[in-house]
Amino acid sequence: MASDPSSTAVGSPASDPIRVMLVDDSAVVRGLVTRILEAEPGIQIAASVGNGQMAISALERSDIDVIILDIEMPVMDGMTALPKLLQVDPGVKIIMQSTLTLKGADISMRAMQMGAADYIPKPTATRDLAGGIEFKAELVGKIKALGQARRRDPKRPIRPGGAPPASRPIANPVPKVQIHPAGPLQLRTHAAEAPDIIAIGSSTGGPQALFAVLGIMRAGTVSQPIVITQHMPATFTTILAEHISRVSGWEAREGQDGEVVRNGRVYIAPGDFHMVIETKGPDKVLRLNKNPPENFCRPSVDPMLRSVAAAYGKRVLTCILTGMGSDGLKGGQAVVASGGTVIAQDEATSVVWGMPGAVATAGICSAVLPLPEIAPWIIKLAARR
């Protein structure tokens, strides 16, 4: 899945580029990735090391924004190094390099639960590094999005090689949040109608947010079906569903084409498929398709939201969680046009405030909330059923 690099531009790259550390025991991979990134304005390779122990030492003496961390390395592997790196600098953004296998997906999911910001498929010399446009776009897009989020962190430490705070411009200042006229739930003068379905969209940082939100929702009184589009490739969505079931207690699985939507279940859009809902007689059924990517993504949040708006009308509650880009904006507008409700995660608790920021600043959200407040808000509305 390629990301849109243009949606994550950074300001004044010459004076203060995003500083990246590469951690991989393969000198060949580090060299090829270095050449990719050094060709990008606004990105600088600040360190390149061969194992986790060297990465910790480099982070202690260097100003680093984003770390690309391989999982399997000698001396100290990526999973051992991850918590140690975050102990040195809790705000540094770490992208795990993972193989597109069940094992790699499972390790990546555990890494994100431990604090990694995102993952990227481990490159191969024959496919990705030898001119792979999709790999380059995804890598650069994630580095720029996470680097920009890092620059907004007021607690970011200054180490040798880093620019002083005054010279750290942040591009594209975020417009003011505009709350939809319906207002937050607690401020409404008339009771909102409870939803018949809950639709969630997420991307970078999404798995961590999903685990938190769904765990609290399961302990509440939510019985509606939940459909989720998380930007992930095939295999990774399989593991995501397993982790959601294990962490939250929901019955979560990848959606299957033609499956009837049932209460009390969580359906994840499978990697490389858009997941939508159609009305078939008295039932609502899932449909999977390989229509062209939207917002550079498949699965994409927008087609899912358009379909739930068409199938359920005003009885839709949509939540847009952390993620880069603006996927979910057009679908969220369709939900609101049908009388449904949209809420979003706030900037302070988002890994990247791209997707939730897009809907929050478009004026279609009834609430923009910190992550810990999202599940209680949903529970309150869902309980009005």
Rank of each mutant, 00 (worst) to 15 (best):
A2F: 10
S3A: 12
S6C: 00
T8R: 10
V10E: 10
I18L: 14
V23S: 00
D25S: 11
D25L: 13
A27F: 02
V28C: 01
V29G: 04
V29T: 14
L32W: 04
T34M: 06
I36L: 15
L37T: 01
L37S: 06
E38D: 08
E40T: 13
G42D: 11
G42S: 05
I43A: 03
Q44I: 00
A46G: 11
A46M: 11
S48I: 01
N51T: 09
E60I: 06
S62A: 12
I64A: 09
I64Q: 02
D65H: 14
M76R: 13
L82G: 03
G91P: 00
K93A: 15
S98N: 03
S98G: 09
T99I: 04
S108C: 12
Q113F: 04
A116Q: 05
D118L: 08
P121Y: 04
E134Q: 11
E134M: 13
G141V: 07
G141K: 11
K142S: 08
A149H: 06
R151W: 10
R152V: 01
P154A: 12
R156F: 00
R159Y: 05
P165E: 09
A166R: 12
S167L: 14
P173F: 13
K176M: 11
V177L: 02
P181F: 06
G183W: 09
A192Q: 11
I198E: 06
A199G: 04
I200Q: 11
G201A: 06
S202V: 14
S203P: 06
T204R: 06
P207M: 11
F211P: 00
G215H: 14
G215Q: 14
G220L: 10
V222L: 15
Q230M: 07
T238N: 14
A241C: 03
S245W: 10
R246Q: 15
V247Y: 11
G249T: 08
E251L: 09
E254H: 05
E259P: 13
N263T: 04
A269F: 09
A269G: 06
P270R: 03
H274G: 10
M275Q: 11
V276R: 15
P282V: 02
K290E: 15
N295W: 01
V301S: 05
V301Q: 07
V308P: 01
V308L: 05
K314N: 14
L321Q: 08
G323N: 08
G325P: 06
G325D: 08
L329R: 04
L329P: 09
G331N: 08
A334Q: 10
V335P: 00
V336Y: 03
V336S: 13
G339E: 09
A344T: 04
A344G: 09
E347R: 02
A348F: 07
A348C: 01
A348H: 12
W353Q: 03
W353K: 06
M355C: 08
G363Q: 09
I364Q: 08
S366K: 06
A367L: 08
V368Q: 10
P370Q: 11
E373Q: 15
A375P: 09
W377P: 00
R384H: 08
